[in-house]
């Protein structure tokens, strides 16, 4: 079953008076439980695609279906609600809430979703990513790899259908990168988590089930 399907997806920006076509008709289908890597050179539209699928941005034209539902016409509030319940984000620069501790960062989306037992669940997620002993640490007190693991735990807070990771290892050393990819693999295998990951690294990309190559806003192969 397609969990994500896009049809002739286009996105263009105005850079001054010049129109930049970030996506120029992308058709992608991703199956439920798939671990997909999106690769390509800088500026090819990888992150733009991820933002569209994650409903952070609105396409210029085309369709996006998540679990068979057309999500392109959703209002801002509906998109926010959809992100909260069904999509988990992992960013290159971790993007944790600096004023919240590790456990609070994970609790926060659960609280927004009015989940019961959010503290207990957040603790379990921290244990899952191997940071059970760092619950009260602020992001500034954690290493890059640890911060990214907290981000992964946060992205899993509301048991999302899709995990979207934009260069999740781009800011990490080799050892931490390896740990993060192993964690992704574990989530994919043990929980059947659908993961769409943008990466520059061929080595990281090869850990996924499938690689989609982007070039100049279209799928190359």
């Amino acid at each position: 079953m397609d969990i994500i399907k896009t049809g002739n997806l286009k996105k263009s920006y105005m850079l001054g008076k010049v129109e930049v076509k970030a996506l120029n008709g992308v058709d992608v289908s991703i199956q439920k439980g798939e671990f997909v890597a999106i690769m390509g050179p800088s500026g090819c539209g990888k992150s733009t695609f991820l933002n569209m699928v994650g409903m952070l941005d609105i396409p210029t034209s085309g369709e996006i279906y998540v679990e068979g539902n057309d999500v392109t016409g959703m209002s801002s509030n509906k998109r926010a609600e959809y992100r909260l319940r069904h999509i988990g984000f992992i960013f290159q620069f971790f993007n944790l809430f600096n004023e919240l501790t590790a456990i609070e960062n994970i609790m926060f989306p659960m609280m927004l979703n009015r989940m019961p037992n959010y503290r207990k669940n957040a603790q379990e997620l921290l244990n899952l990513v191997g940071l059970g002993d760092r619950i009260h640490h602020l992001p500034s007190e954690l290493s890059g790899g640890q911060q990214q693991r907290v981000t992964i735990a946060r992205s899993l807070a509301n048991s999302p259908k899709i995990l979207l990771a934009d260069e999740p290892t781009g800011n990490l050393d080799t050892k931490s990168s390896k740990e993060i990819i192993e964690l992704f693999r574990k989530l994919n295998l043990e929980r059947g988590q659908t993961i769409v990951m943008v990466t520059h690294s061929q080595e990281i990309g090869e850990k996924a089930d499938r690689i989609i190559h982007f070039r100049d806003g279209i799928i190359e192969k």
Partner: peptide, 16 residues
Amino acid sequence: RRQIGIMKAVGMKDFQ
């Protein structure tokens, strides 16, 4: 700005 962006990304609505 970035913190606000993250709030939105994790699913916080505009009025929240």
